[in-house]
Design a protein around this nucleic acid. Structure first.
Length: 592
RNA sequence: GGUCUCAUAGCUCAACUGGAUAGAGCAGCUGCCUUCUAAGCAGCAGGUUGCUGGUUCGACUCCAGCUGGGAUCACCA
C-alpha cells in the first residue's frame, strides 16, 4: 500500500465531509521528533474553508480520521499542527508490501528515453577533481533516471581537436624525442599533459624574451615561435595534412587509453562517444538553413549572427567571417546529430559546469528557433566549481588535484584504516584490496555527491578522507553490519518473515518510515536532477537503522515472530541502502 | 558596468520548496564494547540564517535595497 497516498485521500475525504469542500493541495509533512506521530497536517491554510480556529480544525479532522480512516490510531494538535499517529498494524502492512516486492524502488520501464551527457573533456590534459564531480554527477543522474523507468543513453563529446591539442603536439614535436607512454612508463593522458605544460612554459619564456626586446604583450603572444608552430599545426590539421593527422591521432590515442583506465577505476561508462572532429562541421549546415529561414542573419563581412535581444540576451556569432564554425555551431550540430541517432529520446541532460550557463541558455534558444520542439526538453545540469582550501584550482598554477592521484590516495587511506581496525583478518589479499577500493571510492563519491550539485563546494583533502560520520563508508559499514546479522540468522535457520507481528518499537517505526520514503525520494531526485537527495537519504536511513541496532539486540528476542520480522526488516534496510548507493555509483561490502 | 548566482554553528553541509524550538557531520567535552561489527550509539556545548526594510497567521525560504564572494558578457573552447 502507498501510505502517503492513502492518508492524503483520507484527509481529502475528511475535509469534504466536514467542511463540504474539496481540496487538492495541502501540506503533509513529517512530524518533528519532539511530538508524537509520523505525519503532520498543517492546518493554517485550511482555516479559510473550515471557518474554525487552526486548533479546532485540527481536532475536527483528527477525530474524523480516527473514526473513519482505519489507519490513524490517535492524534494530537499542537498550535495549528495536526500530528497523526498511524497504527502499528498499518506500518506492518506497509512494510509487508515492501518486503513482498523483489524490485522495491525499481520502476517498470515506462518506454521513455533520455540522454545524459557528462565528462566531455579536452584531450590535452588528464582528468582532475572537477571532472570527478562532473562524472559522478552525470553517472548518478543517469542511474536515477533508469531507476524511475527511463531508458538512458550516456554519452560524451570529446573535444579532440583545436588549438589545445595542437599545443601539446607542438611541444612534443620540439622536445619529445619520440617519447611514448611505453618508453616513458607514463600513462598516455599524463604524457600528453606533460607536453601541454611544457608548451606553456616555453611559450611564456618566449613571450617574456620578446617583450624584453620591446614587443607588445599582445604581439609577443602571436609571435612566439612555439605558438606559431601550434597555430600552423592547427591549420595543417584542417587541411588534412597527413603527418599532422597522424601525430594528432597518435597522441589522442594515448590520451584515450589513459582516460579509459581512469573511467574504469571511477566506475563510469558511456554508451556512445561523440568526437568534435567528426561533428564540428555539421552545425554549419543548420546555421545556413537558419539564415535562409530568417532566424539568423549575415553581416557584410560574411559572419553569421543570431539576435537574442528579444530574449534578454545579446547577439551571438555562429559562423566566423571566414566561414569556420565556433563552439556554439558545433554544439548545435552535435545536439541535432544525437536526436537523429536516438530518435526516441525526449530530451538531453548536459552535465556541464555553471560557467557555461550562458552558453546553454543561448544553445537551447537557438535550437528552439530552428524549430526543434525537443529544445524545450533539454536541460543544463549545471554544477558549481570545486574549490580547494588554497582557493580555486588553476591548471596553469599547478594547483589541480589529479583524478588518478586522488583516487589512489583515497584507496590507500581506506586500506590503511581497514587494516588498523583488523576486522578482516579472514579475507584474502585480493579481497582486502577490493574492499579498500570500494571504501576509498565510496568515500570520494559520497563526498562529492552529498552536496547540492548547483552549489559550489569546498574540497578539503584531509576531510574527504574521513571515514566516520556523514560519509560513504559509514553507510557501507551499516550495510556490512546488517549482512553480518543476516549471515548469522541464516546459520541459525531463521528465515525472514512478516507474520503475527502485532506491535512495533519506536525505532522500528522510524526505519519503516524511512524505507517507505525511498520511492518518493527517488522521484524527487530525478525531478531535481540531484543525487545529493539520494546520498542524504541513504545516510539518514543508515543512521536510523544504527539507532535501532543499538536499542534492540535482535537475537535476544524470544518471540519467534518478532525475531523473523526483525530479520526481514534488516534485510530490506540493507537492500534499500544498497540500491540507493548503487544510484550513486557506490558499491557496498558484505563485511568491513 | 549589465546579467546570473551564492552567503546558515569554529569548519563542511542539510532544512521536504512559505510552517512548530533551524538540523547532521567534523573539531571540543562526557558516558557506553564479557551480548548481532565501537568505521557505531547516547549526551553536553555551539546560531540575531551577511545587513536593513517589506509582504502575512508564519520568512533561512518570497520582494526591494545594501555589503561581500563567484561566474559570465570574445569571429576562445
Amino acid at each position: 500500500m502507498n501510505l502517503d497516498l492513502t492518508l492524503r485521500t483520507e484527509i481529502q475525504k475528511a475535509v469534504a465531509e466536514l467542511f463540504h469542500q474539496t481540496i487538492e493541495q495541502f501540506q503533509l509533512q513529517p512530524t518533528n521528533v519532539e511530538f508524537e506521530g509520523s505525519h503532520t497536517l498543517v492546518c493554517f491554510p485550511l482555516t479559510r474553508i473550515s471557518k474554525l480556529k487552526p486548533e479546532e480544525t485540527g481536532n475536527a479532522i483528527g477525530n474524523y480520521l480516527v473514526e473513519h480512516s482505519g489507519i490513524v490510531a490517535r492524534f494530537n494538535v499542537v498550535k495549528g499542527f495536526l500530528n497523526l499517529v498511524i497504527s502499528d498494524a498499518v506500518w506492518i502492512q506497509v512494510f509487508e508490501s515492501i518486503f513482498a516486492q523483489t524490485n522495491y524502488g525499481i520502476a517498470e520501464p515506462t518506454g521513455r528515453e533520455v540522454m545524459v551527457e557528462y565528462s566531455s573533456p579536452n584531450t590535452n590534459k588528464p582528468l582532475h577533481l572537477g571532472h570527478l564531480r562532473n562524472n559522478f554527477l552525470g553517472y548518478s543522474v543517469a542511474e536515477i533516471y533508469k531507476a524511475i523507468g527511463y531508458t538512458v543513453h550516456k554519452v560524451q563529446i570529446i573535444n579532440d581537436r583545436g588549438i589545445h591539442i595542437c599545443k601539446s603536439m607542438a611541444a612534443w614535436k620540439l622536445f619529445g624525442n619520440g617519447e611514448t607512454p611505453e618508453s616513458s612508463g607514463l600513462k598516455g593522458d599524463k604524457l600528453v599533459g606533460k607536453y601541454y605544460v611544457e608548451f606553456d612554459k616555453n611559450f611564456k619564456a618566449q613571450c617574456k624574451e620578446l617583450e624584453e626586446k620591446g614587443t607588445t604583450k599582445e604581439e609577443a603572444e602571436k609571435q612566439a615561435p612555439i605558438m606559431k608552430l601550434a597555430v600552423q599545426m592547427l591549420q595543417q590539421w584542417e587541411q588534412k595534412d597527413l603527418e599532422t593527422l597522424k601525430l594528432w591521432s597518435t597522441m589522442n590515442g594515448w590520451v584515450y587509453a589513459g582516460f579509459d583506465a581512469t573511467y574504469k577505476r571511477m566506475g563510469v561508462d558511456f554508451e556512445k562517444l561523440y568526437y568534435e572532429s567528426t561533428t564540428y562541421l555539421l552545425g554549419k549546415e543548420e546555421v545556413l538553413r537558419g539564415v535562409e529561414q530568417g532566424v539568423f542573419y549575415k553581416k557584410e563581412d560574411g559572419s553569421v549572427w543570431v539576435d537574442l535581444t528579444a530574449d534578454g540576451l545579446d547577439q551571438k556569432v555562429l559562423l566566423r567571417s571566414d566561414g569556420t564554425s565556433v563552439y556554439m555551431t558545433q554544439d548545435i550540430g552535435t545536439a541535432i546529430l544525437r536526436f537523429r541517432d536516438f530518435p526516441k529520446i525526449e530530451g538531453q541532460i548536459y552535465t556541464v559546469g555553471n560557467e557555461q550557463e550562458y552558453h546553454f541558455k543561448v544553445l537551447f534558444l537557438i535550437l528552439g528557433k530552428l524549430g526543434y520542439e525537443w529544445a524545450k526538453k533539454c536541460y543544463h545540469l549545471s554544477y558549481g566549481m570545486v574549490d580547494l582550501p588554497t582557493g580555486k584550482m588553476k591548471s596553469r598554477e599547478g594547483t589541480v588535484v589529479d583524478a588518478d592521484d586522488l583516487m589512489q590516495e583515497m584507496v590507500e587511506e581506506a586500506c590503511k584504516q581497514t587494516k588498523e581496525l583488523g576486522k578482516i583478518d579472514e579475507l584474502s589479499t585480493e579481497e582486502v584490496n577490493d574492499l579498500a577500493e570500494m571504501i576509498g571510492l565510496g568515500a570520494l563519491k559520497f563526498f562529492l555527491l552529498k552536496v547540492d550539485p548547483k552549489k559550489r563546494m569546498m574540497f578539503d583533502p584531509s576531510e574527504s578522507i574521513q571515514l566516520q560520520g556523514h560519509t560513504g563508508p559509514f553507510i557501507q559499514y551499516t550495510h556490512a553490519r546488517i549482512k553480518s546479522i543476516l549471515r548469522k540468522a541464516e546459520s541459525m535457520n531463521i528465515a525472514p518473515d512478516v507474520v503475527d507481528v502485532k506491535s512495533l518499537e519506536p525505532a522500528e517505526r522510524e526505519v519503516i518510515f524511512k524505507i517507505n520514503q525511498y520511492t518518493n525520494k527517488l522521484q524527487e531526485a530525478a525531478r531535481e536532477y540531484s543525487p545529493a537527495l539520494i546520498a542524504n537519504y541513504a545516510y539518514e536511513l543508515a543512521k536510523e537503522y544504527n539507532q535501532f541496532y543499538q536499542a534492540i539486540p535482535i537475537f535476544n528476542e524470544s518471540d519467534p515472530a518478532k525475531l523473523k520480522f526483525r530479520i526481514a526488516f534488516s534485510q530490506v534496510t540493507a537492500s534499500t541502502i544498497a540500491k540507493a548507493m548503487s544510484l550513486l555509483g557506490i558499491r557496498v561490502p558484505e563485511r568491513m
